[in-house]
């Protein structure tokens, strides 16, 4: 976290993450452009520009699919959490790959047009009333526009400037972008594909994204009924040391109950930085640490340690026969609550 906008120092895990991502993209493009052509049918050779378009286009589609899978996968299995940490770089790289695909297509189809190339792009096909030959480019332009907007607003400044609620809503536009990209491929490349591989892989990708989201949403437990104003959160020893359980609350944000060195503390599950899932984080050096960007908060009052100023809402806890009970009414952000001693 940063009190002012300075370049973030990259730690080893961030460097490894980015290096692996770049290597994977480079390997995919390299194999597509220089290895795959030796296996293609002699009667249907793919020219250089078409190969570039396909390589970068399919790469961008798979990266987008992975980005959309990371969130629900991490909710289903904590081992995927490290993939969440640097998702911002993942998104910006995906945008760069998609732009390269668009540039290759633009050069191939419009560079020698007698019209202005951009005018030719928009005016070349206007058969919006028929499915066959539908101007699939429109979906590609829309999807690319969304990727550009999300990459352009990925800096922390935009979160503060737009407010977290609006920023989050804007970035949920990725689902609209993905839908547009699927339509772009379905009405474009799939219409002229000579083998079913692309159709099969694209269908599997969409099914994977949808099923992971459904599974993750089913995993979220229904809110428990309060008893005398207190919600039973479960036995205290079911909370792993240094970790949290997340308690859903009816018509309110979920609450994360952390256990650390024999004491329990409860704060909102929603990080004050980018609404990250705090309850999926852990306690590092005595502070709750958000799994998304490493923002930290003290357990007892939900305040970020000085000089930082972010604050979380805290909650009261009590024990009854080994069961943790939670008062679902949030305290004002930064309110001190004595941690509940359990062992």
């Amino acid at each position: 976290m940063s009190a002012r906008y300075v370049p973030v120092s990259w730690n080893t895990s961030k460097l490894v993450y980015d290096a692996l991502l770049l290597a994977a993209i480079g390997l995919y493009i390299g194999v597509y452009l220089w290895v795959a052509p030796s296996f293609q049918h002699a009667t249907l050779p793919l020219d250089e520009y078409s190969a570039r378009m396909a390589a970068f286009g399919t790469c961008a589609f798979f990266l987008l699919t992975l980005i959309l899978c990371i969130g629900p996968a991490a909710r289903l299995d904590r081992r995927f959490l490290p993939l969440l940490y640097n998702r911002r770089h993942f998104g910006v790289l995906t945008c760069a790959v998609a732009l390269t695909h668009a540039n290759a297509a633009f050069e191939w189809y419009f560079s020698y047009s007698p019209l202005d190339p951009y005018v030719a792009l928009l005016a070349g096909n206007t058969s919006f009333r028929q499915l066959s030959g539908f101007p699939f480019e429109a979906f590609g332009i829309f999807g690319l526009g969304i990727l550009l907007l999300l990459a352009a607003t990925s800096h922390d400044f935009w979160l503060a400037f737009l407010t977290p609620r609006l920023w989050k809503a804007l970035h949920m536009g990725l689902y609209a972008g993905y839908t547009a990209v699927v339509l772009h491929v379905a009405l474009g490349a799939l219409q002229t594909a000579h083998n079913p591989l692309l159709a099969v892989v694209m269908t599997l990708s969409v099914v994977l994204v949808a099923s992971l989201h459904v599974a993750a949403s089913r995993k979220s437990a229904l809110p428990a009924e309060p008893e005398d104003g207190w919600i039973p959160a479960g036995p205290w020893d079911s909370i792993p040391d240094g970790r949290a359980i997340v308690v859903p609350i009816a018509d309110a944000e979920p609450v994360a109950i952390f256990r650390y060195e024999g004491r329990l503390s409860a704060v909102t599950h929603v990080c004050a930085h980018q609404n990250g899932p705090l309850g999926e984080g852990s306690v590092v050096l005595g502070c709750i640490t958000c799994p998304w960007h490493g923002f930290q908060y003290r357990l007892e009052d939900g305040c970020a340690p000085p000089p930082y100023t972010e604050k979380l809402a805290t909650y009261r806890l009590k024990l009854a026969d080994g069961m943790v009970l939670l008062d679902p009414r949030p305290n004002p952000p930064g309110t001190y609550v004595e941690p509940l001693r359990v062992a």
Binding site: Y5, P7, L148, L149, A151, A152, H155, W158
Partner: peptide, 19 residues
């Protein structure tokens, strides 16, 4: 938090142009 911080500003240009 912006005064005195300059390196990040060029990164904001695409977003400012779009929005």
């Amino acid at each position: 938090t912006a005064p005195g911080a300059y390196a990040f500003r060029p990164l904001l240009i695409p977003g400012l142009v779009l929005l």
